[in-house]
Structures are given as structure tokens and as C-alpha cells.
Design a protein around this nucleic acid. Structure first.
Lengths: 227, 227
DNA sequence: GTTTTATAAATTGCATACAATTTATAAAAC
DNA sequence: GTTTTATAAATTGTATGCAATTTATAAAAC
């Protein structure tokens, strides 16, 4: 959702840009994504936008209503619970695999990401913080080396951002700075027990900050109500 | 890949039909999927076929080469190993959840599926057997109640069929009839230990039947495609 | 003032047309 | 006989046009 591009964008790139916008809470849950608007924003025809939206719908980030268009998904509380259950299952495995096979270069990438997170925090750029926090977990999955798990996390993390946008109880003061740091440190010293424990604690921390039993009202996105 | 339809097909339906064809080994790994051919086969325009192929590519069942078209994926041995690693992680969780929350109706659905598998076996319909074997695991995931895991398995099972098509050592005599039965029985009597053990054994059995270190030969039986 | 109905505008869903690219075929060169 | 080059056919990538549907606007009824 930026200025028009000079070079032609592939549909994956379009989908990625929209995903980033969702992760940064620039596109709130429930908002309608009008094809023509996106088409001119990205400087392509509706045909490509349509394919990108099809892709995002498959990921679950966008919901398609027949003849009514595409909307940023509003995950239900049940979906949120399922999502965290899945992450509790998968992320310990990711940690195990990272410890088992990460080389120095991988660790350097992780540490570099931590620096980027710290920078965003220092600058008080809340949107970038949220996106980078999600992308940390995606990077971890990437480093873990299993493409299927990497792909799964690449879907779950943006959805987690969406869930946070919907259910975050009145201004949780962003994620605590050092939980990611501690995880990477535990990984670096090959301490599997600790790393897994920290990861699970981190996930519990994120989930517990949510008010999943409160019906979210954010703004009223009428278009999504009559779905 | 059937006769032209009377009613308009949604892109998900098109994708599903192609998926079924892949699962039944009617579309072998590596084969090219020409858009125009599919369009006339399904009685729709290339626009919709393109969206369906985009979807299947996202699932990993189809691989897109720029300007060259869509091909049924030929999973590498490494991908195959990652896939089974993922299934070993996820399917015990599925079993746990099914035992925890399956009602009588769910069990009935599972048993009904076992009957369908037995029928296919009795009729010696090898293609249906392979597809139904994969779909058993998808059904289990569906019954487990976690949509994210359901979706993951809906991707991994067709890919598993593809891997079997590529790496199956010279004529493994199909899956043993009763491994699925035993799993359902263990689930029915709420025996978590046994059910998980049987599931892992089942997965090991499938994987061990593969020749993942042999470079697969590509031979497409064109005549059998539309049978 | 609210609800209902009619009309116009906006938007989606789909097919088609056309340029860009790749693949197949045939002729020429070696 | 094989390789190379040139030409034609097939196929993909993209935009655009139009029918179908939904949404917005305004007038009428209550």
C-alpha cells in the first residue's frame, strides 16, 4: 500500500506488500480491499490484484465474500486459540531444529534481526515493532530449515498480528524487549530446554495479553458484519 | 480432469479436481498443465484456470516457471524428508485432539471412510485406494477441530501422494489394509498411547517404503491420463 | 423522522484480445 | 548425421471490456 511502482510487481510481491500492511496494522481487520483501488495503488490491472487476493485468501489473511469483495480477515476467538495451539506445537520443534542445524551465519542473521527490533523500539516506531516481532518468528522458522514449517509460520505470524490488532486489551505496552533476545541467546548456547521453555513462555505471554473472551468492536466494520 | 461441467465451477473446485487427479496419480509429477487445455476441459476461461493454478502453486502441488507455465511438482528427496518430519510432529497432535473431542458422529464418519477404503480395495481400484488413503489423514485432521492443522494436512497429504508416485520402490503392494483401522479403533477406545504409536508406525511404514536416495525417473503414461 | 421504493453509481466476476515469450519445425551450414 | 539458424506455432502474461451484482443516493410513502 505504497506509491505506484516503477517496475512491474509480481503477484507474490503484491501479496507481500499487503501482508506487511496488515502486519503493521495499517490495514485493520474487517476493512474492505477494493480491487480497483489496489490496482491503481500498485500500478497493475485488476487481474493481478485478483490473483494476489486469491493467494491472501488462501493464507487466511483475507476473506472473500462472493460478489461482495475481499476483506481483511477478522479472526474469531476460537481461531485465535487454534492458532496459538498450533504455534505451541510447532515453535518448540523449530527451536529444536535451529539448535541442531544453525550455523554461525544463521545466528548472525538472527542477531541482526534483534538489532533491527531494538532500533525500531528505540525510535518508538510501534508499527515496525509489531511487524518485526512477527517476522522474528518467521526468520526462526526459515533458519530451522523445514520448508513446510517455514511456510506455515509465514501464514500464522501475519494472522497473529491480526489477532493482536483485534483482541489486544487496552494498550498493552508492546512486547517486552528481551524475550526474543533471550531465546536467541539460549539457542546460541545450545540450551534446548531453556530455549523451548522461553519460547513457550513468550507465546503464553502474547496470548495472555489478549482479551479473547471480549467481543471485539474496534471500529465497526459494517461490511464484515453482514457476511 | 473430467468432462465439461454444466454448472460454473469455482476456482476452489477446479483446484480440488486437479488435486484429486494428482492424488490418484492420473497427473504424474513433472507433467505440464497447459492453461488452454484445462480451460476447455473445465469449460471456463483461462482467467479462472490461472487463479486455480496460482492456488495450487501456493499449496506446493504445482510449480510455476515464469513464461513457461505450470507443472505438477516433483518434490525433492529433501522435501520428502521434511514433509514426513512435519507429519511426525503434527499427526500425533491430531490424534490427541481427536481422542479429546471426537463425538460419536465424528467416529461414524471415520468408520464410514474406512468402509470406503475397504470397498476400493475389494474392487482393486488402486487409484481410489491411494487417494482415499491420503484423504483418511485429511479427515482425521478435520475431525481434530483445528483449522490450521486441517489446512496444513490438506496440503501435506496430496504432496505425500506425489512423493509416493515419484519414490515408490518398484511396486510396493499398496498400504496394508488395517493400519488405518487400527488407528481408528485405538481412537475409539480412547487409547492415546496406542493411537499415537500406531500413527507413527504407519508414517514410518509409508516413508520406509520409499527409495528417497534413488534419483527418480520421469515416465509419463500419456494414454492413461484421461481414463 | 423513519421506512420503503426506485434509480444511479460502484464493484465484482468473467471472458476475450493482444503483446511478449517460449517451444516446435524446417531449412541451412558444417 | 549433427549442429546451427531462421521461421512459424503455441503458450503465457497482462490489460481491458462488459454483464451481473451489490452498494449508495435520492425520492416517495407512511
Amino acid at each position: 500500500m505504497d506509491a505506484a511502482p516503477t517496475t512491474k510487481l509480481a503477484i507474490e510481491q503484491i501479496a507481500e506488500r499487503i501482508t506487511d500492511a496488515v502486519m503493521e496494522h495499517r490495514l485493520p481487520p474487517g476493512i474492505k480491499l477494493v480491487e480497483e483501488k489496489l490496482a491503481s495503488a500498485f500500478g497493475v490491472s485488476r487481474t493481478k490484484i485478483r490473483q494476489a487476493l486469491t493467494l491472501l485468501a488462501k493464507e487466511g489473511l483475507v476473506t472473500l465474500h462472493a460478489n461482495r469483495g475481499a476483506f481483511v480477515t477478522r479472526p474469531s476467538a476460537a481461531q485465535a486459540r487454534d492458532l496459538f495451539a498450533t504455534r505451541r506445537l510447532v515453535e518448540p520443534e523449530i527451536v529444536r531444529n535451529v539448535i541442531a542445524r544453525a550455523c554461525e551465519h544463521d545466528l548472525a542473521r538472527l542477531r541482526q534481526h534483534l538489532v533491527a527490533e531494538a532500533d525500531a523500539r528505540k525510535e518508538g516506531d510501534r508499527r515496525r515493532i509489531i511487524r518485526l516481532s512477527g517476522q522474528f518468528h518467521m526468520l526462526l522458522a526459515e533458519v530451522s530449515g523445514n520448508k513446510f514449517i517455514e511456510k506455515l509460520m509465514a501464514e500464522l505470524c501475519p494472522l497473529t498480528c491480526l489477532i493482536i490488532a483485534l483482541y489486544d486489551s487496552p494498550h498493552t505496552p508492546a512486547c517486552p524487549d528481551d524475550e526474543h533476545n533471550q531465546i536467541v541467546e539460549a539457542i546460541a548456547r545450545q540450551d534446548q530446554e531453556a530455549a523451548i521453555h522461553l519460547m513457550l513462555h513468550h507465546l503464553a505471554h502474547i496470548e495472555s495479553a489478549l482479551a479473547l473472551d471480549v467481543v471485539p468492536e474496534l471500529d465497526i466494520h459494517w461490511e464484515a458484519l453482514y457476511g
